[in-house]
Design a protein around this nucleic acid. Structure first.
Lengths: 262, 262
DNA sequence: GTCCTACCAG
DNA sequence: CTGGTAGGAC
């Protein structure tokens, strides 16, 4: 079974890219971020035709997340729990599909630092950690997957010194990510490739992709119940090189069938 | 020798379309309208690489005309003569190339009627007619070619009654075109196909191309000196069907070598 | 750089 | 409908 995350950066503008990649990669479950579309303009028909069910939460201009799956999707949540004033962004959707609880997230970027957007990022991260705490020890396979907008360590950016003032690399944010993982989650890329620079995002500016000036922002976290099923993981880096591609590349993980490791 | 006109509707957005058509149609001289680009962002290099010299007048956002030629181009005018306050639009360029005086024009649309834009259209047409009068009897081959934004007769629109209030079909405008032709010009399409509906433009709206709901707006006029050289003319209608094409199709004419008919 | 929103022009 | 523009976000 293959599960992937892809920050598509505008689902309608990049529907062809998405469909091409779906066909090529053939994942069973896909989490999308940055739909940049209102809920009513989600291209459900084309996604269905490609062989996927889908649930999504959209909003005008920004954010927006979706879960695609070849099998039935039971929606669990359309946002993280939290205070009323936090509910304006479409950044989290959770479902049960393929026997797995899938939390699909798009964490706020948070720039500039300091400022209200950075404060919101930290608050959002707290909400996520609180919810994750309730999921990590469940007797259910749980995957928390998406665009975390964090480079967890120096290994996750081509040039750490360039990002010292960036919201994606602030000590508070890296710490929040480390503490989240410490709840008992497995960061699959770092589990399989502990010492390798692996990127999931290359800026559109200054030909970042050509220079491999990348960042690792998209992460796949498995709880203890599902982590033993981990087989492989990777980044479909070449997709970033397609004409008119998103600035992110898809990240995927493959798992054994449930029960195979027990 | 083959001469063509093509309202490209944004030369940078449609450079690939233009190059594909140039390769396929292989014209010797091409007049372009609606560059929608400032002069400095004209894609001279790519045009040169495709085998053409070029001269152009651009402006921000709108209008803009160019003459491309496989042979040397001597620029004659960068606008029609006229009053100072008429010089704000880039709608006319004239050159001597391939032994022919080529006037490349983009007449104002003029909608809505009535209004200052329609008045400007009529004034612009007067300026054109005055200039054309100076060209028509020259002992030189002259071609006046481009997007005239006029359907000269009922035969030139799929549904005349739909256009009674449209600036492209006002009696004053049709009359201005008829009087221009009457100076001694040959409208090559009507010369060769006097009774056939032939269109050069299909609106983007309501699938006009699929329904062949077209208009004939792009015209090729020859003066008496060059008219005897006329061999054939046509519209590259299929180009309108290409993905992301302009709403106009290229119109072309072929001529015998100079002197062959004398 | 490339999205989005808007508006304007055709 | 599909260009262009501008500004905001990332």
């Amino acid at each position: 079974m293959k599960i992937a995350t892809y920050n598509i950066n505008g689902i309608n503008g990049r529907l062809e890219i998405l469909l091409r990649w779906l066909k090529e990669a053939d994942p069973d479950i896909v989490c999308l971020q940055e739909l940049k579309a209102e809920s009513r303009s989600f291209p459900e028909q084309e996604i269905n035709t490609a062989g996927y069910n889908a649930i999504w939460v959209g909003q005008k201009s920004w954010n927006g997340v979706a879960i695609l799956s070849k099998t039935e999707i039971k929606e669990l949540h359309r946002d993280l729990p939290g205070e009323d004033d936090e509910f304006t962004h479409s950044r989290y959707i959770e479902a049960f599909t393929g026997g797995i609880v899938v939390g699909c997230l798009y964490l706020p970027n948070g720039n500039p630092v300091p400022g209200p957007k950075f404060d919101y990022k930290l608050r959002w991260f707290k909400r996520l950690a609180k919810h994750a705490k309730n999921l990590v020890d469940r007797e259910l396979p749980v995957i928390l997957i998406g665009d975390y907008n964090v480079m967890p360590t120096d290994l996750d950016t081509y040039k750490p010194e360039k990002y010292v003032n960036n919201a994606l690399f602030q000590p508070e944010v890296k710490k929040a990510y480390a503490q989240l993982v410490k709840q008992g989650w497995t960061d699959v890329i770092r589990k399989l490739y502990p010492d390798e620079p692996i990127y999931t995002f290359w800026d559109y500016l200054r030909n970042a992709y050509e220079w491999n000036a990348g960042l690792r922002l998209d992460h796949v976290l498995l709880n203890k119940h599902i982590a033993p099923r981990l087989v492989s993981a990777g980044v479909d880096k070449h997709v970033r090189g397609w004409k008119d591609a998103s600035d992110h590349a898809p990240v995927w993980v493959t798992l054994t069938s449930p029960g195979a490791n027990r």
